[in-house]
């Protein structure tokens, strides 16, 4: 699994490649929170384009990042480029009420 965090000014853009499960979610949490802490970003955009698998640990990871953003205050979390399989779990969780979705990272940037 690979996690790339790009500092995009007010947005931290995270690209995840590989599987998101309980094992990898812990590493995502560590890396994203560290990058967010070091940046001046308000918002986090996570791209799921290259995520091959996600179970409910991914939902826990998103809920955690939502809290991280709220702790800093005023920002938003956007889930971008979700595949059909990932959308299914995301929709089941009811997270769509608090986390917005975007078809592309560019669309996510425009929405913030």
């Amino acid at each position: 699994m690979e996690i790339k965090c790009e500092d995009g000014g007010k947005n931290l853009i995270v690209f995840i490649t590989g599987d998101i499960d309980h094992h990898s979610a812990q590493e995502i949490k560590r890396k994203v929170d560290k990058s967010f802490e070091r940046s001046n970003a308000k918002n986090i955009i996570i791209s799921f384009k290259n995520v091959s698998f996600m179970d409910s640990s991914g939902i826990g990871m998103l809920m955690g990042r939502y809290k991280t953003i709220n702790y800093r205050g005023g920002g938003k979390l956007v889930a971008a480029e979700m595949t059909a399989g990932i959308s299914r779990i995301f929709d089941m969780s009811g997270l769509s009420k608090i986390i917005s979705r975007a078809a592309t990272v560019e669309e996510a940037v425009r929405s913030l």
Partner: peptide, 14 residues
């Protein structure tokens, strides 16, 4: 405290 969503059994059932 472990950032669990509590969705595990719900996912298995679905």
């Amino acid at each position: 405290e472990l950032e669990r969503s509590g969705m595990g059994f719900t996912v298995m059932e679905a």
